[in-house]
Design a protein around this nucleic acid. Structure first.
Lengths: 380, 380
DNA sequence: TTGTAAGCGTTATCAA
DNA sequence: TTGATAACGCTTACAA
């Protein structure tokens, strides 16, 4: 069972090319497949493990140039890499940071991830990325796994976690930073979009552009604070501006009813002679709605219905759709920084970092286009 | 420095709600922030570590019901979780599988990842996901890190790795599975799309639909085998069918020249009275081209130019673009299975698993649309 | 400046 | 059926 596992050998590989040295000619060959350990290096360099460890940890001031050279040579010769696991076990910290993502299919997550990765890189952490893929069970399971791998901290883009699970980390002294949304009953650092400001920005833009009936489309707001905040901000802004607007809740897993309702409202508004604009609460909603509108109104759907959204999806440019771009990269970066500060011992009340969104104006909401819209607004 | 890190305390957290028990009232409180170890459990259960270990590893047949119950209770009481790092250190395997992705921004990667995750889950592995974000340095760095964390195997969607780096894994007895593309000079298991078949499928479709001039658009093929294979297959198919077609290389980082050339070729073909179709070698290329065409021909660009692509991007449906959908999920799954077999000791020549793509026909290449195209084909 | 030895949380060996 | 005890690969007092 633990027999030496034969290394992949050429044989009759179809498409691939060359490479035909039959024996593992390199330096590690003597050790078999086993990786060199600190003991091997010590022996090779003719010294003790301590000195190797010192070398590895950069305590150069305390090593004679001679010894240092021998160590360097030994490490190179054996192609030695310190075992992080062992290191972590001894030190009590393994530089691992858990990053739990609700849905990588949402470009938002990928972008946040990029920020997280960059910051981790800069600060010497290794992100242990967990993708719940919208499965609440997966989320729970990964959270357990993270605790099992003894991550030093976690960044959570929550799907449906309950407060208690996260509480477990906090009580274990493992800092938790929430991203995009908070978790009911759990007080901790959190980073995300300044939803009220972003929604206000967008809503004002629509009103400025002369739209008279606004329809905000959002997934079920239960337990997802960012959705709730966006919806609330929409209503509030509409009220403040004395504009006319309503909210439509759509479940992406079963959207037909909501989409029918959407059509109905659009038609009603048009009948009332109002210019109507649709405002999707995030990228996935926007895509779903766009696909529907295209099915209903044809390729030229944008002449009939105006759509904008939060999240600057990659196809937004193609569709010429106005959006609010989230500062995703910074959100990720900031989350890691929060964690880093906590890991450094910072003891302060939970913080909240709300970053501003950026309005990206495109043709969809622009006056010239509205004229087209006017012209074609007869569709039922 | 190692002082007990104060757990996040409410304070004046703005948006969040409730939770105000001032003391950590739960069971682990007595231990401070430290997680319970196997020794703690043994003491609590009034037995030795060995029995706990046996329990953890499911050797139930060798435990008296009584002891078993006590252990169960102790584990629950202390909320004990075995430390994977320590486990791995002792056992020599930590169930970690490295997954190196070239670019998560490409939905292809995310989809493959989903398959990988599912398979890992099923087989009891934990994927350690590394995202090179198109940076060749990152890729190298992550590869080093993976070796440092002693992953049991690696799945690599290569960016620009050199054979030697990967050779290091193989020689260390760590199986490597390549995804989507091979690495020159490195012979190992690999999983990906059956490029020749997929391209042939698409090309035949275009010819069947009556297109007379085909333009294949692909990123620089150097060192990315899948691109090379697709391009070759395109040329071959075109030759076999006695059709007319050419290839255009586009560098997404600096696309203007290629896009100008593209326009020129399209115009030339149309002047010659030929129906022309563009065939993008992957999703990112398709998006770039589509955005360009839209800028050039306006919202109704699809009436002027026909585009299809490999990779069924999320916006493909919105644009009504014909595509070849890759079996991404299966690719990921298969890669893990390959790894699992190697880890189980399977010693056989390197294998190659080429999965078929699926043609998804949409309006862009469909006859009725071509008529529109004909009508509007006067654009310079 | 260098080395010895103890121990991190497990599992494996061996004896009871 | 159970339990000491010795590793695993590393860091860290503490000596020399």
């Amino acid at each position: 069972m633990t027999a030496s596992r034969p290394v992949t050998r050429p044989g009759a590989a179809p498409t691939t090319t060359m490479s035909d040295d039959p024996t593992p000619t390199n330096r590690t060959a003597a050790l078999g497949a086993r990786r060199a350990t600190i003991t091997d290096v010590a022996r090779e360099a003719g010294t003790g493990k301590t000195s190797i460890s010192r070398y590895l940890n950069g305590e150069m001031g305390v090593l004679s140039p001679d010894l240092r050279e021998r160590i360097e040579a030994a490490i190179a010769k054996l192609d030695y890499r310190p075992n992080q696991m062992a290191r972590g076990l001894k030190r009590g910290r393994n530089r691992l940071i858990g990053m739990l993502l609700a849905d990588l299919t949402n470009p938002y997550s990928v972008e946040v991830l990029q920020g997280v990765e960059a910051a981790c890189h800069a600060l010497g952490y290794m992100p242990l990325i967990c993708h719940a893929a919208n499965e609440i069970d997966m989320e729970r399971r990964y959270l357990q796994l993270l605790t099992t791998y003894r991550v030093e901290g976690v960044i959570v883009n929550a799907l449906g976690v309950k407060e208690e699970l996260l509480q477990g980390f906090a009580q274990g002294g493992i800092p938790v930073v929430l991203v995009d949304r908070s978790v009911e009953g759990f007080v901790t650092d959190m980073v995300g979009l300044d939803n009220p400001a972003a929604v206000q920005l967008a809503t004002c833009h629509l009103v400025d552009e002369g739209f008279e009936e606004l329809l905000f489309i959002v997934q079920p707001v239960t337990h997802v604070s960012s959705r709730r905040l966006r919806e609330a901000a929409f209503r509030e802004t509409v009220a403040t501006l004395n504009a006319s607007g309503s909210t439509l809740v759509i479940d992406l897993a079963d959207a037909s009813a909501a989409l029918a309702e959407l059509d109905a409202r659009v038609v009603a508004a048009k009948r009332a002679g109002k210019r109507v604009a649709l405002f999707a609460a995030n990228g996935p909603v926007a895509l779903r709605v766009a696909v529907h509108l295209k099915e209903r109104h044809g390729v030229d759907w944008q002449a009939s219905v105006v759509l904008m959204s939060i999240d600057d999806s990659e196809w937004a440019q193609l569709a010429g759709m106005t959006t609010v771009r989230q500062p995703t990269y910074d959100i990720g970066r900031r989350a890691v920084e929060f964690l880093h500060e906590r890991l450094g011992g910072a003891a302060m009340p939970a913080r909240e970092c709300l970053l501003p969104g950026e309005l990206v104006v495109r043709a969809s909401t622009t006056r010239t286009d509205q004229l087209d819209m006017q012209r074609a607004s007869q569709g039922t």
